[in-house]
């Protein structure tokens, strides 16, 4: 199954996220990553979803999204034409036996130490989803206490915007 990223501009109204995710649930589209954020205007919010499926599934998903009156524009964003980032916060056990390896790995990935205590270390990593997956995988060799990921946010390169696609 191919993974694809869709950015959705929605009206900034009460309950809109529920309407969007309810459609995903009802029609059994999967959600691998979900990010909801404020935008450059109060009028709209931005939802970024990573889902998986064949072309027909993707087309169907986009068509079903367009039927929601609160959805104002949709774009599929890919690696070539857009920038995507996710933020990871990961809390790992601070064990004297593994501390050195854990810190080395963090440096190698460019993760920042944002909290350091006797019991644990929290790293922050802002990166592409794949790199975050790899870092988490690596940390599994040590004792992961807790993980929080923001979900992927994406912006198009250059001057194009989601708002330009309104009323397609």
């Amino acid at each position: 199954m191919n993974s694809f990223t869709i950015a959705i501009l929605v009206k900034n109204k009460f309950g809109v996220l529920n309407r969007v995710t309810s459609m995903f649930r009802r029609r059994q589209f999967n959600i691998a990553s979900l990010n909801v954020s404020e935008t450059e205007t109060d009028e709209y919010s931005r939802i970024t979803v990573i889902s998986a499926g064949d072309e027909r599934t993707k087309d169907q998903l986009i068509d079903q999204l367009y039927k929601l009156p609160d959805v104002v524009s949709i774009k599929e964003l890919d690696e070539l034409t857009s920038i995507s980032r996710e933020v990871l916060l990961i809390k790992v056990e601070n064990n004297p036996e593994t501390r050195r390896d854990v810190l080395d790995a963090a440096v190698a990935f460019g993760a920042e130490t944002v909290d350091y205590s006797k019991a644990s270390i929290i790293f922050q990593l802002t990166s592409k989803r794949k790199k975050i997956d790899e870092f988490v995988e690596l940390m599994r060799d040590y004792n992961i206490i807790e993980i929080c990921r923001t979900g992927v946010g994406t912006l198009e390169r250059g001057g194009d915007t989601l708002r330009q696609a309104i009323n397609l």
């Binding site: 009460f14 309950g15 529920n18 309407r19 309810s22 459609m23 009802r26 039927k67 929601l68 009156p69």
Partner: peptide
């Protein structure tokens, strides 16, 4: 009722 009818309406409104 807007929650209940979400998947069986074309759209619904709560007029706050």
């Amino acid at each position: 009722i807007t929650g209940v009818t979400l998947p069986i309406t074309k759209h619904n409104y709560f007029v706050g």
